[in-house]
Simulated assay, not measured.
Amino acid sequence: MPAETDIPAAGTPGVHAGAADDTATQGHGEPALLETRGLEVHFPVRRRGLRRTAQMVRAVDGVDLRLDHGETLGLVGESGCGKTTLGSAVLGLRSGVRGAVYYRSGQGRLLDATRLGSADLAEYRQEVRMIFQDPHASLNPRLTLLDLVGEPLRVLQGVGGAELEERVAGILERVGLRRDHLRRYPHAFSGGERQRVSIARALVPGPRLVVADEAVSALDVSVRSQILNLLQDLQDEMGLTYLFVSHDLSVVEHVCTRVAVMYLGRVVEQADTSELYGHPRHPYTEALISAVPVPDPRLRGRRERIRLTGELPDPASPPSGCPFHTRCGYATERCAIDRPPLREITPGHRVACHHAEELSLAGLP
Rank of each mutant, 00 (worst) to 15 (best):
G239Y: 13
P13N: 05
R174K: 14
G363Q: 06
P347E: 11
E165F: 10
V259A: 06
A162I: 11
H254Y: 15
A137M: 13
G310C: 07
P293N: 02
H282V: 03
R66M: 11
R109P: 00
G301Q: 10
Y330W: 12
S222D: 02
P13E: 08
T332V: 12
D112M: 01
L34C: 10
D338L: 14
V63Q: 01
E344F: 07
S274T: 14
D112I: 00
A352M: 10
R305M: 09
R183S: 14
L148H: 09
C322M: 09
L308A: 06
R37A: 06
A20S: 13
G18D: 05
A20R: 15
T241R: 06
G363D: 04
F132Y: 15
D248Y: 04
D180P: 00
T309S: 14
A137R: 11
T84G: 05
H349G: 08
P135F: 11
S95L: 04
P135A: 13
V15N: 01
E78M: 05
L75E: 04
V204C: 08
G27P: 03
L299Q: 13
S246A: 15
S95M: 05
Q126A: 14
A24Y: 04
L276S: 02
E165V: 06
A9K: 08
G239D: 13
H181L: 03
R339D: 13
F43C: 07
